[in-house]
Simulated assay, not measured.
Amino acid sequence: MASHPERNDARKGKKRGPPPRFPRRPDTGNDEWIWGWHAVEAALANPRRGAPLRLLATPEKACQIEARFGRLPALETADNGLISQNLPQNAVHQGVALRPAPLDEVDVASFEPRKGAVLLMLDQVTDPQNVGAILRSAAAFGASGVILQDRNAPRFTGALAKAAAGALEQIPVARVVNLSRTLEELADLGWRAVGLTGAGERDLAEVLDGAPTVLVLGSEGEGMRRLVAEHCDELARIPMPGGFESLNVSAAAAVALYEAARPRI
């Protein structure tokens, strides 16, 4: 027999009322979110993404979003606490969080090997903060794109998007299965590969000649893997007269991109 919602509770001598109302449960897959104003704004403006799946914003940020993009069906007004519940702990969301549609995949064959063009290839660089910072530098210095290994790279959301500050939406990123085979494919298309390592015999400035170039950077600590290094046309070093043996990979990428962006005679 069905129970009546107002039946007596013998344990407390009180009547049971209707169940309490709770706010909408937060999503459990919080690695799928993008947060922070610049990252979210860039994702919403990116025509390569579809309609957002869910968008949380404080009233102030919701007004800014509607002023820029019009009324979006996915937009929900929420306070800072509810936004934080959907994100990793200590995420600095600035009053806005987005579950975006995925980015379209990029094929390496779409990178045009024109004079002065530069690609970045990251060999097992797994820290999202580093990858995000590298994307930001790639956008700043006009790189044609970034290539990551599919199984040894972070997802395109969360801390990575926040660190990239919108560059994730500007720089084409290709995920590939095998970096060595990809370097062979790029060589056939007219690209030259330069691996960055402290063991390089020449400085990077001496190696760069304005030809379309893939700059290959390895993870901190281990550097490039042997097989990837063997598929580079040349290995070069970043000179460091101050005596340090190495740079953080995102700093090394910024220095290398700056050097590659300098005009070559």
Rank of each mutant, 00 (worst) to 15 (best):
T58R: 04
P59A: 00
P59S: 05
E60G: 02
E60S: 10
K61Y: 08
A62D: 06
C63A: 15
Q64W: 10
Q64F: 13
I65W: 12
E66V: 12
E66R: 07
A67H: 07
A67L: 01
R68V: 09
F69A: 00
F69L: 04
P73Q: 13
A74V: 04
A74C: 02
L75C: 04
L75W: 00
L75G: 07
E76H: 12
T77Q: 05
A78I: 00
A78H: 00
N80L: 14
N80H: 05
N80M: 14
N80W: 13
G81A: 04
L82Q: 13
I83W: 04
I83C: 03
S84L: 07
S84H: 11
Q85N: 08
L87G: 07
P88H: 06
Q89T: 13
N90R: 08
N90F: 09
H93P: 15
G95C: 08
V96W: 10
V96P: 15
V96E: 06
P100F: 02
P102N: 01
L103N: 00
D104N: 03
V106M: 06
V106N: 03
V106L: 07
D107A: 15
D107L: 14
V108S: 11
A109M: 13
A109E: 04
S110D: 08
S110E: 11
F111Y: 10
E112A: 02
P113Q: 01
P113N: 01
R114P: 11
A117Q: 15
A117W: 08
V118D: 01
V118S: 00
L120W: 08
L120Q: 03
L122G: 02
D123T: 09
Q124K: 10
V125G: 09
T126R: 05
T126G: 05
P128V: 12
P128N: 10
Q129H: 15
V131S: 00
V131I: 03
V131E: 10
A133F: 15
A133H: 14
I134P: 10
I134V: 11
I134D: 01
R136L: 14
S137V: 14
S137A: 15
A140W: 09
G142C: 01
A143N: 15
G145Q: 11
I147H: 08
L148N: 06
L148C: 05
L148V: 04
L148Q: 06
L148Y: 03
Q149F: 08
Q149H: 00
A153S: 14
A153H: 15
F156W: 02
T157S: 08
G158P: 08
G158M: 02
G158Y: 07
A159L: 09
L160F: 11
L160T: 09
A161H: 10
K162F: 13
A163Q: 14
G166M: 08
G166N: 14
G166A: 07
L168F: 11
E169M: 05
E169A: 06
Q170K: 12
V173W: 09
